[in-house]
Amino acid sequence: MIGPDDDGFAAFVAARGTSLLRVAYLACGDDRDAEDLLQTALERTYRKWDRVRHDNPEPYVRRIIVNTAISRARRRAILRILPTHTPPELPVRETDVDLRHVLMDALRALPPRQRAVVVLRYWEDLGETQTAEILGCSAGTVKSQASKALTKLRSALGAESVEGLIRNVHA
């Protein structure tokens, strides 16, 4: 099925597929959407592999994933499912799993671009400039969006400090 010309692409996917799937999941917040997002991004990359493979293809794929996630969210596919109009209700925090869900729900409830900033900055550990390049905005915008996102995450989790809650989870 895979010819010699595809070897490099296959090796790339084998090496980075899982990492990219995780980015896709964090960008869109859903397992199945993440798989679809990744496949879409890889298909686009495959079609341009001759050009892309000479550079580092991973940023190229990541850019497609994040921007496609934002674009799809804007098409309401995700926003119809997620309670983005209002902060998520606070569940009863009985277990560590509950708490993690609270934070992940809060992350999903962020506007797509803010969510992308959080994923790129704090998951991918990209700098503000790199994040700005991927999202097609200024570094200042990245900074302000990150700040707003963190404020919303704190707010969504209620009066208690996020740091304290999370420390309890890992205690």
Binding site: R22, Y25, L103, V119, R121, Y122, W123, L153, V162, E163
Partner: peptide
């Protein structure tokens, strides 16, 4: 918070 987010995201994925 940033570090905690990283941890949560790592756990989740």
């Amino acid at each position: 918070l940033e570090d905690d987010l990283r941890q949560i995201m790592a756990d989740e994925t």
